[in-house]
Write a protein that binds this DNA or RNA. Structure first.
Lengths: 159, 159
DNA sequence: GCGGCAATACTCGGATAACAACTGTCCGAGTAAGTAAGG
DNA sequence: CCTTACTTACTCGGACAGTTGTTATCCGAGTATTGCCGC
């Protein structure tokens, strides 16, 4: 029941991409330096987010990652399941039907009660994460920090 | 975000122990055979449940495991966290304070929004599991199966 | 026949390997910009 | 001066090791039974 490290990375990066003005691409090297992360490993998670259709990757100079759709239409659940996988945490092995105490087929018309309870809890978990969008998270970022990030990625052209 | 295999084993075994009449101990060998599980590995999980104070282990002949308290006072969450560990699935690394885009200390007076959202979801998950007791699960077991289990462990004395 | 004792068999508990998944890293394919040559 | 083709540098994408956690297993410590011996 441990959550992958990449979930935090993916969420922070998605959050940052939602802060930059428009569709300005940010390369993964900059993202990695911004948070002090290992660039090569971050690549793996950004790739997962891209495959899930949350980010859009642009190759070549001035390329990078940008949100594939508005921050109001991306939920925390989207990011989490893109990185972590959307598989259920509990895979019922139906052990009630095995061994010397196996239940008869006619006793298994209803789904396993244990699996049902966990599925219900998992549903609550997902619903709670689905209720929060990336946009709402941006609003919780201190304004001074948000301004600094906007200035950093908005229009700095050295040389 | 994968749940350990032992959670299912622990829940089924706890459920079965709640079905046997009173404080009749059931050895792990019988439990393993009842569900077709590996006895040596099951031992590890039963041990965890015992350490958590959910089961009581009796050594020696006619020994085994029994519930340490009534099934009405044991929740699914108790069993799950006893086997899986009660640690939070998300350990915030505070990466917002690291790298070139590090937030200033005065910008971090409030806890990380990402960690807060996940903590909220985790709370929903736990609350959902805490609401169901082992006793309630027993009631969902088909009566015919329950009767068979009671007869199996209640009073069969060959020889 | 009864009580005590020792042997026994059965139980759990902790220490020990095998496997898998997550973590961490590298190099190659593709693209857009920049540059220089030609018209 | 403009167009065009080429070179270049920068980007992402997939393939390849290292390390931690889960899975699986075994053997030793402790206890209640059970049979036996002595009284």
């Amino acid at each position: 029941m441990k959550l992958s490290e990449g979930v935090e990375w993916g969420l922070h990066c998605t959050l940052l991409l939602a802060e930059v003005p428009a569709g300005v691409p940010v390369p993964r090297r900059v993202l990695a330096e911004h948070y002090g992360l290992a660039e090569a490993y971050l690549a793996k998670h950004l790739q997962a987010l891209t495959r899930a259709g949350l980010l859009h990757a642009t190759p070549g100079p001035n390329g990078g990652f940008r949100l594939a759709r508005p921050a109001t239409e991306i939920t925390v659940l989207d990011v989490l399941e893109a990185v972590e996988g959307a598989a259920s945490p509990f895979a019922c092995q139906e052990i009630r039907r095995q061994g010397s105490g196996a239940a008869l087929p006619e006793e298994c018309t209803r789904p396993c009660a244990i699996a049902s309870v966990i599925a219900q809890a998992h549903s609550s978990w997902r619903e709670s994460l689905r209720a929060v969008t990336i946009d709402q998270l941006v609003e919780r970022v201190p304004k001074t920090l948000r301004a600094r990030n906007r200035a950093k990625f908005g229009g700095d052209a050295p040389t």
